[in-house]
């Protein structure tokens, strides 16, 4: 098995801290916080402004384009991950003569998306209309 538990110890520690905080923070507030309920405190918090309308509403369909753009760069990131894992390793994984080629391959990979990004930018996809 290639699974070394030791590699994941930082992840486990992080999970323990996150879950512990998520439980401890509301619990501590529940135990030690003073309770004086006033109508203002019962209002939904909206950065000090009086809330207008319902919080649950239909969102603009423009947000869906943002979601699709996010997905494109998300998948882009996915293919940078194995490269990032490769790049920092020493040894015979990638021959040293090959390093420069690899650098330019990644530049070409990124450049194709940059071209699309500039196209979308020029077409006004990022403008909020």
């Amino acid at each position: 098995m290639d699974f070394f538990l030791g590699t994941y110890y930082p992840v486990f520690m992080y999970l323990v801290v996150v879950i512990g905080f998520a439980i401890a923070a509301p619990l501590t507030a529940h135990l030690i916080a003073p309770r004086k309920v006033t109508p203002v405190k019962q209002m939904p918090y909206e950065s000090g402004m009086d809330p207008i309308g319902d919080a649950r509403m239909k969102f603009d369909v423009k947000f869906y384009l943002i979601a699709i753009l996010f997905l494109v760069f998300d998948v882009e990131l996915l293919f940078l991950y194995p490269w990032a894992a490769t790049n920092q390793t020493t040894g015979s994984l990638i021959p040293s003569a090959f390093k420069d080629v690899v650098f330019w391959e990644i530049q070409a990979f990124l450049l194709t998306v940059v071209v699309a990004y500039i196209y979308a930018w020029r077409k006004g996809v990022f403008k909020w209309r």
């Binding site: 494109v72 998948v75 882009e76 293919f79 990124l110 194709t112 699309a116 996809v125």
Partner: peptide, 14 residues
């Protein structure tokens, strides 16, 4: 794959 991503972005822009 990167060309594919380019196609998706241009499609969204279009």
């Amino acid at each position: 794959i990167s060309v594919h991503l380019l196609v998706v972005l241009i499609g969204a822009a279009y």
